[in-house]
Design a binder for these strands. Sequence first.
DNA 1: CTCCAACGTAAACATATGTTATTGACCTAC
DNA 2: GTAGGTCAATAACATATGTTTACGTTGGAG
Lengths: 240, 240
Amino acid sequence: MVNQFIKKLQGFVELTAADIRALEEATGRPQTFPPRTDLIREGDQPGPVLVVLEGWAFRYKVLPNGTRQIIAFLIPGDCCDLNISMLAEMDHSIQTATHAQVSKIESTVLTDLMTNHPRIARAMYVAQLIDESTLRAWIVSLGRRSSAERVAHLLLELYIRGVRTGLANRDELELPISQTVLADALGMTPVHVNRMLQDLRRSGAIELKRGLLRILGPEILTRISGFDDNYLHRRLRAYN
Amino acid sequence: MVNQFIKKLQGFVELTAADIRALEEATGRPQTFPPRTDLIREGDQPGPVLVVLEGWAFRYKVLPNGTRQIIAFLIPGDCCDLNISMLAEMDHSIQTATHAQVSKIESTVLTDLMTNHPRIARAMYVAQLIDESTLRAWIVSLGRRSSAERVAHLLLELYIRGVRTGLANRDELELPISQTVLADALGMTPVHVNRMLQDLRRSGAIELKRGLLRILGPEILTRISGFDDNYLHRRLRAYN
DNA sequence: CTCCAACGTAAACATATGTTATTGACCTAC
DNA sequence: GTAGGTCAATAACATATGTTTACGTTGGAG
């Protein structure tokens, strides 16, 4: 089975055979987790860096009133913050959305990877920059887009990220999350997410059933959401 | 005049005299900019790292419909992303809110700082982690807090950050931004920001006039916003 | 095969927030 | 000192989204 993490990093830099071997060594023994499992909780002391090899997970925070806001989706190939162990405690939690295979990279191993494999270091920094850019894009969506725009924007984002990692075939992406989860990511209620999805179906932009999303009219989604993919940084600066 | 950037980094790690000299050298010749000046624009090729020594600035994005969302405030001591030059173009803009003194650190100088001064490197990574954590906290606010809660939360955040950098004396913080700017940060309209500020004044939580914010009832703001300062990471993991 | 829980769908109604407009205070340029 | 622009304050009204409730479907556990 392909190691999605390595595949993703290869999209950023050209890795040597030695780089790849080191990454395989570091992520070779993933653990399997059932859905709805917290991999790490807010308040915990940060431990090893998590890398999602299969399945979906998400970062989230729970508010005093019990509501939840999802902050980011982690799809195969994604990993959590690099230097996280410098902080005394986690400021958010990470939970699996589906069955997931996750590798944990101990900080000693990570340090070794970063210092002895400059291309890996660079690729991981790029990945981190893109994650941060995505956080900014979410702030923009939550702050200034209507709910219809937000839904369209998120579906397009996930689709494009899926294409990038080979998760999407043609116009199809497996979207293994409930409308409640979507709602917690979009800052709306599940009822309203449902309304907006119905609108998108009626407009012919998407088909969505049983966890399978089909993008029938990408241009419709782009128009509705005002999508600009620059925040996903598909072009990078050449490696000096 | 104190170099707020050095002061901030000293809050994270113990710097040696040599570290401080290197930082003074790197940020010693700041440029002055008038208010409302774009320091860098979305789409530009990333250049040197920006460090704000005096005055306020903010990161923002403009949407196709012309509305603006502010993504982060940069107060004295703050700097922008470290590895930003790995990306081909900026995904957002940065603008001064007031007269500001800004130093630009060329990437060669930065690389030198990071490789030859491990304490500086560590401090800058911590700063970056906290910035990222703050992005997540903003997502939570925009997604799941009411407008009253959001206003209270932002004021408290700015006040706490101000205290941390010595910008705030006692219960006072200079808040040199208009309600329109606040609105663009909070994802609401200026009219509604005004309503919420009035409510906060009436509740005795704050006083705010001519750019001077007074926190009269921090506990009121905390209660209203459900504020938890963990995302600002005032405690750090001990340096191995 | 059946039951149960989670999920998706829908309608009716409530409300938080946006929209538009007006006015006065303040500041800066001249 | 005056003019013009930005900003804060407030009111009346519009609407997007939340709330509550109900019901049928789906899928997994036993």
